[in-house]
Design a protein around this nucleic acid. Structure first.
Lengths: 251, 251
DNA sequence: GGTATTCTTCTTGTATACAAGACCATTGAG
DNA sequence: CTCAATGGTCTTGTATACAAGAAGAATACC
């Protein structure tokens, strides 16, 4: 493989292109609805057209971009309704995952792992004067918690589908993380969410499938309400992950 | 674009490759676990490596094949547990879709369309001496019913996710279609399923979200039971759509 | 002056060339 | 006879060349 101007030579060109493009879209460098020219992506990513094209196909499957009838791709534009629906989908999937974990039982080691994660989150949100750094750490830990939850199901099919349900960045738990500067009650939100995290783990441990399911659905409803709040506070919108994709107002 | 030995010149090479490969996998021409050589696919499909590669990437996202660490792709092998899980995922997604349709309300035209579909199925399964042809027609109509149901939700995000949930061929409604030669009660199964179809439409019409959700979950449980039956009857296995992908017995 | 048309340019879809790594077999040594 | 090393072949990942189509601009015609 030809490697000339290659910063990180351990990763394939396709992966590099995929990461670059995803970042360009999520960061808002490419506006929703904007057509993605392959050549310009070649310039921006430093890889050739072939891997760029691969990445585009993957991103289309992922749902971040869509094929244009006349050829090529454009950044998908999501409405607020789309975001809320994505959260609901995620809620349904995570409810199913939690139920499966509860009904089928989980290994001691998997349970220990997710309990560790719970403890880490507890520790993180314990102080009352949270900074923006705390929040970005929380996003990471929260994502880990949800990934571990998916794995508790023990079903590759469910894990895959649950992860796909979170493909829309808004559906991800980070969707409801709002900077405390705008919303002083942000920590409270995190505390409530963490409560639900704890409850679902307990429900799984005591084999209460129905309850585990209900908790995760409620968890999604919480995320929905919080995102709604953020969207109403125009000023905080930019702090919501992936907000660059939301086409608001008209249309 | 270079078009020499092109039978159907209206369709792009990539689509042709995608359809060919999917068919090769689902028909069992490529065994589960088997490595897919790009060159051999070039021979079999008559298109060049580039579109073949595109199709491979798409099929990987779709979940029918998986990347090999050392490079290339292999046909994914599914266990029976995978299939059952896929059906459960589909049940959860269709429950959500039905609930959304009920809670949000549907247009008169959409309702008319799905009622038409219901009527067509009624007509098809009315005679008591169903042949194999009836069954394959049923598979088509049934798929249409489920697609129409998804659309009733009115949510592009949910539609997309629901369709993706059926990516595994076993999760599809056709999964429980069993030839009447082996299972004389096959028609009964279809009648029961159709009853559920009718009930969910009624529930949606009368805005009973909870009930619509429950019906679709039960519908999935029915599919699960029927597939179980088919799997127990070794002889009928070959008649289950996509059965070539199921790795049974050992492992 | 406005509209239709043609020409140019750009962009994508496809094919192919090339190089790096993987797999396999053969061969040589212990 | 067994095991390891080495060579060759095959396969994939990447880059690039080429042709068909689309978008846009300039021009000619009404």
């Amino acid at each position: 493989m030809t490697r000339e101007h290659d910063a990180d030579r351990s990763v394939s060109q396709t992966v590099k292109a995929l990461l670059s493009l995803r970042d360009l879209i999520l960061s808002g460098a490419l506006r929703p609805g904007e057509r993605i020219s392959e050549l310009s992506m070649v310039e921006r990513t430093g890889v050739s057209r072939t891997p760029v094209r691969m990445a585009l196909v993957r991103l289309e499957e992922e749902g971040l971009i869509e094929a244009i009838p006349s050829g090529g791709f454009a950044v998908k534009a999501f409405t607020e309704a789309d975001i809320f629906d994505a959260i609901e989908v995620r809620g349904a999937m995570e409810g199913l995952v939690a139920r499966a974990a509860a009904e089928r039982g989980v290994s001691r080691s998997a349970l220990a792992a997710i309990r560790d994660c719970l403890a880490e989150i507890d520790e993180l949100i314990e102080p009352h004067d949270l900074t923006l750094d705390h929040f970005s750490d929380y996003v990471r830990l929260n994502a880990r918690f949800h990934a571990l939850l998916h794995e508790l199901s023990g079903s590759p099919v469910m894990i895959r589908q649950a992860e796909r349900a979170g493909a829309l960045p808004f559906a991800s738990p980070s969707g409801f993380v709002i900077a405390q500067s705008s919303l002083p009650q942000a920590r409270t939100i995190l505390v409530v969410a963490q409560d639900q995290h704890r409850c679902v783990v307990e429900a799984i441990e005591s084999r209460e499938g129905e309850r585990a399911d209900a908790i995760m659905r409620e968890h999604a409803r919480l995320a929905r309400r919080n995102l709604q709040l953020a969207l109403e506070n125009q000023s905080t919108l930019d702090l919501v992950a992936g907000s660059s994709l939301i086409r608001r107002g008209r249309r």
